[in-house]
Computed example of a mutant assay.
Amino acid sequence: MKKIVLSGMRPTGILHLGNLYGALSNWIELQNKDYERFYFVADWHALTTGFSNSTDIPQNTINMVVDWLAFGLDAEKNTLFVQSLVKEHAELFLLLSMITPVSWLERVPSYKDQIAQLGKSKTSNYGFLGYPVLMAADIIIYKAHYVPVGLDQVAHLEFTRELVRHFNHTVEKEVFIEPQPLLTEVPKILGLDGRKMSKSYDNAIYLSDTEEETAKKIKVMFTDPRRKRKSDPGVAKDCGVFMLHKIFTDKQKQNEIEKACSQATIGCVECKKMLIENLNNALKPIREKRNELLQKKDYVKEILIEGSKKASLKAKETMEEVRDAIFSKGRLG
C-alpha cells in the first residue's frame, strides 16, 4: 500500500503569495511522488476562533479551493475534501478528548501566543483549547504516515504523536501509527510592511489581485532599511522585494540584482519595476485559471463532495477499529 500524506488549511478566503508558495507549492510537488494524498478544508478549525463569522465559511471554502486548483493542485491526483463532511472526525475528536490531559493542551506552543494575539474573547472556548485534539483526529483517522510541515511546526505534530502513544497504550492495541513530519523547505515571504505576509496584518499580495493592484502594492513594499538613498549599499537577502525575486526571477538575474544592490548601482524603484513585471507574468495564467473556475463553482463543489465521500470510506474503516479497541469485551465489563 502507498504511504499516506495528509494536510489541511483553514478556509479564511482567498490565498496570498505566502500561502501559495509556502504550503501549497509543497502539496503540488508531492502530487508527483508515490503517495496517497489527502488535503482538506479545515472548516471546523475555523470555528475555534471565528464562530461569529461562520456564515463566511462556505464561500471562503470555494474561494480557497479555487485558488488550490488554479495554482496547480490536481483533483485527479489528490483527494480534496471538507472536514465537516466527514463526521467521523468529530467522533474521534470526542473519544480522544476523554483521555487527553488538560495540561497537555495548555503547554502546546501556540496556545499562549494565540491568546496574546487574538485576545480572550476569541480564545476562551473549549474548542480553542481542544483544537490540537481535533488536529490529531484529522491526521490519524486516515492513518497518515506523513504530514508536510516546516521545521517550526514540528512541535505541533509531536502532540499528535504523543496522543497516539497514549491511546495505543490505554487500549493496549496498536490502532494508530505515529505520523512523521515530512520536512519541506518553505520560502520566506515578507509582506508589504516587512513582517511575515499575513491576511491579519493587511500586508499581503493575493492571487485575486489585478496586475494594477499588485503593482501598486509592490511600489510601497518595504526594502532593506539600510538603503535610505540610492547611493547606499544594501543586503539583498534582508529585503522583502528580493525574497520575491528569488521565486519569480531567473537565477542569473537574481545574482545580478544582488550584486547591484550591494554595490548601490541599482535603486529600489528599478528593482521593484523588474519584480512587478516578473510577478505579473508568472501569475497571469494562474489568475486566468482562477477566473475560469469562479464561473464553475458547481464543478468545484462536486470535487469536494466526491472527495469527501472517498475520505469518509477511509475514516469509517478506522472508526470501526477504534470502537472495537475501546468497547471490546473486557473493557467495559
Rank of each mutant, 00 (worst) to 15 (best):
N63C: 04
K246M: 14
S124R: 13
G72S: 04
V186A: 03
E185L: 08
L134A: 04
G18M: 06
L313M: 10
I14Q: 11
F40P: 08
L15C: 08
S124P: 07
P11E: 03
R37N: 15
M243R: 14
E29L: 12
L332F: 14
L244C: 09
H169G: 07
L95W: 11
E178W: 03
R227C: 09
E256A: 06
T55M: 06
H245D: 09
T160H: 01
A137V: 05
Q31M: 11
N26R: 07
D56W: 02
D324A: 12
Q252D: 14
S200F: 05
D224Q: 06
I4A: 02
T49D: 05
I28F: 02
D224H: 00
V102F: 09
L157C: 12
W104V: 04
L24T: 09
S52M: 00
E185R: 10
T100M: 03
N278R: 14
P285R: 05
V175A: 01
K237D: 15
D298R: 05
L95K: 08
T48Y: 03
R37Y: 13
G330H: 01
T100V: 07
I141R: 09
M274I: 15
L20C: 06
H45K: 09
R227F: 02
T265Y: 12
K237W: 05
Y131W: 01
G130Q: 02
V133D: 01
T61Y: 00
L96E: 05
R229I: 00
G13A: 02
K310N: 13
G119H: 05
L157Q: 08
K122V: 10
V149M: 03
T223Q: 06
E302D: 15
A23P: 11
Q59N: 13
R331S: 11
D152G: 02
P187A: 09
G194A: 05
P187L: 08
G330E: 03
K77Q: 08
Y201L: 12
E76F: 06
I266P: 04
G13N: 05
Y206E: 12
N19Y: 07
A144K: 02
D152E: 13
E292Q: 14
S7G: 13
C239Y: 03
T223G: 15
I115H: 02
V82C: 11
N255F: 05
G267I: 06
Y126D: 07
